[in-house]
Deep mutational scan, measured.
Amino acid sequence: KHLIERYYHQLTEGCGNEACTNEFCASCPTFLRMDNNAAAIKALELYKINAKLCDPH
């Protein structure tokens, strides 16, 4: 559950690194913003595939 919350935060708030290159992070310049419901679904999907989590900045 904690990991899913981290994915959700990364998708909605980002890691804080303006030069982030993680396509699944709101801080990445090319990230496409999504609403909270879509972010919750995506967080579950990312958890299932063990996607990369950013280190908070």
Score class of each variant (00 low, 15 high):
residue 1 K to A: 01
residue 1 K to N: 02
residue 2 H to C: 04
residue 2 H to F: 15
residue 2 H to E: 09
residue 3 L to M: 14
residue 4 I to N: 10
residue 4 I to L: 05
residue 5 E to M: 07
residue 5 E to L: 06
residue 5 E to Q: 14
residue 6 R to K: 14
residue 6 R to F: 06
residue 6 R to D: 11
residue 7 Y to F: 11
residue 8 Y to C: 13
residue 8 Y to G: 04
residue 8 Y to I: 13
residue 8 Y to N: 07
residue 9 H to D: 04
residue 9 H to S: 13
residue 9 H to A: 13
residue 10 Q to F: 03
residue 11 L to Y: 02
residue 12 T to H: 05
residue 12 T to D: 03
residue 13 E to C: 09
residue 13 E to N: 07
residue 13 E to F: 10
residue 14 G to W: 00
residue 14 G to K: 00
residue 14 G to I: 00
residue 15 C to A: 01
residue 16 G to F: 04
residue 16 G to T: 11
residue 16 G to W: 04
residue 17 N to D: 10
residue 17 N to T: 13
residue 18 E to H: 13
residue 18 E to G: 09
residue 18 E to R: 09
residue 18 E to Y: 08
residue 18 E to Q: 15
residue 20 C to P: 00
residue 20 C to E: 00
residue 20 C to M: 00
residue 20 C to L: 00
residue 21 T to W: 07
residue 21 T to G: 11
residue 21 T to V: 13
residue 21 T to Y: 02
residue 22 N to A: 03
residue 22 N to L: 01
residue 22 N to W: 01
residue 23 E to F: 08
residue 23 E to I: 10
residue 24 F to R: 07
residue 24 F to M: 11
residue 24 F to I: 11
residue 25 C to Q: 01
residue 26 A to C: 09
residue 26 A to E: 03
residue 27 S to I: 01
residue 27 S to G: 08
residue 28 C to G: 05
residue 28 C to S: 09
residue 29 P to H: 10
residue 29 P to V: 05
residue 30 T to Q: 10
residue 30 T to V: 08
residue 30 T to D: 08
residue 30 T to I: 10
residue 31 F to H: 12
residue 31 F to P: 05
residue 31 F to V: 10
residue 34 M to K: 04
residue 35 D to V: 05
residue 36 N to C: 12
residue 36 N to D: 15
residue 36 N to F: 10
residue 36 N to T: 11
residue 36 N to I: 07
residue 37 N to F: 02
residue 38 A to V: 14
residue 39 A to C: 11
residue 39 A to P: 04
residue 40 A to Y: 04
residue 40 A to S: 14
residue 40 A to G: 14
residue 41 I to L: 08
residue 41 I to F: 05
residue 41 I to M: 09
residue 41 I to R: 13
residue 42 K to R: 11
residue 42 K to Q: 08
residue 42 K to I: 02
residue 42 K to G: 03
residue 43 A to H: 00
residue 43 A to K: 04
residue 43 A to Q: 02
residue 44 L to Q: 15
residue 45 E to G: 08
residue 45 E to M: 05
residue 45 E to L: 04
residue 46 L to C: 11
residue 46 L to K: 01
residue 46 L to Y: 03
residue 46 L to I: 09
residue 47 Y to C: 14
residue 47 Y to A: 15
residue 48 K to C: 02
residue 48 K to E: 09
residue 49 I to L: 10
residue 50 N to F: 06
residue 50 N to R: 11
residue 50 N to M: 08
residue 50 N to I: 03
residue 50 N to V: 05
residue 51 A to P: 03
residue 51 A to T: 12
residue 51 A to S: 12
residue 52 K to S: 03
residue 54 C to S: 08
residue 56 P to R: 14
residue 56 P to H: 04
residue 57 H to Y: 13
residue 57 H to Q: 13
residue 57 H to T: 15
